[in-house]
């Protein structure tokens, strides 16, 4: 895994995209592992009974994609320290999701290099399903 260093990062830098296209099968795996009991994630009929068009992707699953974008970028020596997201729109199986981030601030404190980012997931219609902010720590070079 490649490593990004604090000195190489500045506001305006883009991160990603990490592209995901969650399938019904992947949703079932996530739901089963997480023991989610809401059938809107596994049954079109149940989802329609709640006024939805069909199965939706659990919000926490989509958020996990954003977490992956950030931990992949931060590398082995970096760390995701904060993730703050709002769920704005339903995600459905088959949606093409682009997980992206933009660096908004860089700051060195007493013992850490902090990078603040705007983060979001856009669907194939360029609608934002999730958006928020994150904070990552990065290592120095050398």
């Amino acid at each position: 895994m490649s490593q990004v260093y604090f000195e190489d990062v500045e506001p305006g830098d883009d991160v990603g995209p990490l592209v995901k296209e969650p399938t019904k099968e992947q949703i079932r795996d996530y739901v089963s592992l997480s023991e989610l009991r809401m059938s809107r994630f596994t049954s079109d009929q149940a989802a329609q009974g709640e006024g939805l068009r069909g199965i939706i992707v659990p919000g926490n699953m989509s958020m996990s994609f954003l977490s992956q974008l950030l931990t992949d970028w931060a590398g082995d020596q970096g760390r995701l320290t904060k993730l703050d997201v709002n769920f704005r729109r339903m995600v459905e199986p088959g949606d093409r999701l682009e997980c992206k981030a933009t660096v908004t601030d860089v700051e060195t404190t007493e013992d850490q290099n902090l990078v603040t980012l705007d983060v979001y997931i856009e669907n194939q219609k360029a609608e934002r399903a999730i958006q928020g902010t994150a904070q990552v720590t990065l290592p120095n070079k050398g």
């Binding site: 006024g51 919000g59 958020m63 760390r79 995701l80 904060k82 703050d84 997201v85 709002n86 769920f87």
Partner: peptide, 25 residues
């Protein structure tokens, strides 16, 4: 999955969804 947490038993609406998550690691 843990034990069920406190339930404020909100008497409103027909369904519920995730609105936001704020995480500190």
């Amino acid at each position: 999955r843990l034990q069920p947490g406190p339930d404020p038993q909100v008497k409103f609406g027909t369904t519920s969804f995730n609105a936001s998550q704020h995480c500190e690691f």
